[in-house]
Nucleic acid binder design. Structure first.
Lengths: 92, 92
DNA sequence: ACGCGTTACGTATCACGTAAATATC
DNA sequence: GATATTTACGTGATACGTAACGCGT
């Protein structure tokens, strides 16, 4: 499991479409599709239903989405916090 | 930034020692040391003070540690949740 | 036939481990 | 000189993109 895979998952979940998500992430479809397959394989559960129109979240996917968003938010918070603390050298 | 780097950081923070953390992670020192350096580079802040006895957390490192633990806990929760939901196929 | 996701495959990048270097006591 | 981290360097694994495929409408 990697943060990249999680970001990919969230993008596909939000777009409901691998192609659009790929463009949003500045990536091509195949690697993005592989991210999702790797996640599903690692979790041992199908996260999306493949329809002719795109990708629909399954219950397991909805559950994962909530955690995925919190993970990414926490990573963001970590970065901002450290950058804040890190710049506290000598106050101007 | 990767989950591996974050795990490495937590291990070093807890052990205060790259060598011990490396053994705990079943890894050698060099890659582990590089994980920390990569994190510090990416965050633009020094996380540890290098002493002859090992590694001591700096304020920025302490701040990051809290977030790091929450990230890893959230990842764990995500995995367990999905595995739980995923096994709800047809109840036995 | 079209639009979607996936698989095949070749190449560039990344990440490891062994070995050597650097630094502090 | 011993113990700690870090850099050098060679090799195996990863991950991308292009192209070809499979499937349903």
């Amino acid at each position: 499991m990697s943060l990249t895979h999680i970001q990919s998952f969230v993008a596909v979940a939000e777009e409901g479409h691998v192609g659009r998500a790929a463009r949003r992430l500045h990536l091509t479809q195949p690697p993005l599709s592989r991210h999702i397959l790797a996640l599903e394989d690692e979790l041992g559960a199908q996260l999306f239903e493949r329809t002719p129109r795109g990708m629909r979240l399954l219950p397991a996917g909805e559950a994962f989405l909530q955690h995925a968003r919190r993970i990414l938010a926490e990573v963001d918070a970590a970065v901002h916090t450290v950058r804040g603390v890190g710049s506290e050298r000598s106050e101007p």
